[in-house]
């Protein structure tokens, strides 16, 4: 069986490189989504008490009492 050394090296080197590229991209995208979601939920939590003029603790307490009726 004839061996094309250049082709073999191209596939192995290029393949490993592309694997790192794809998986690193996934790492970055996953981190970015997590970062955005965390920021957004932190902002939302901050905004709720601010709108009602309450601290987050008092907002939670009044929601709980409302739920109890």
């Amino acid at each position: 069986m004839s061996v094309d050394y250049a082709e073999g090296l191209k596939i192995a080197g290029g393949g490993l490189g592309v694997t790192f590229l794809v998986l690193s991209s996934l790492a970055v995208v996953t981190w970015l989504v997590g970062f955005i979601v965390q920021k957004a939920s932190a902002r939302r939590e901050k905004a709720v008490p601010a709108e009602t003029g309450q601290t987050s603790d008092t907002a939670k307490t009044s929601k709980e009492s409302a739920a109890r009726g």
Partner: peptide, 24 residues
Amino acid sequence: RPISFVFGAAAQFGVFVVFLIAYF
């Protein structure tokens, strides 16, 4: 822990080395 993906990529090292050994 997104850096897990980099470990997943590094753990494919043997795949490509053995591909080369087998082909060569």
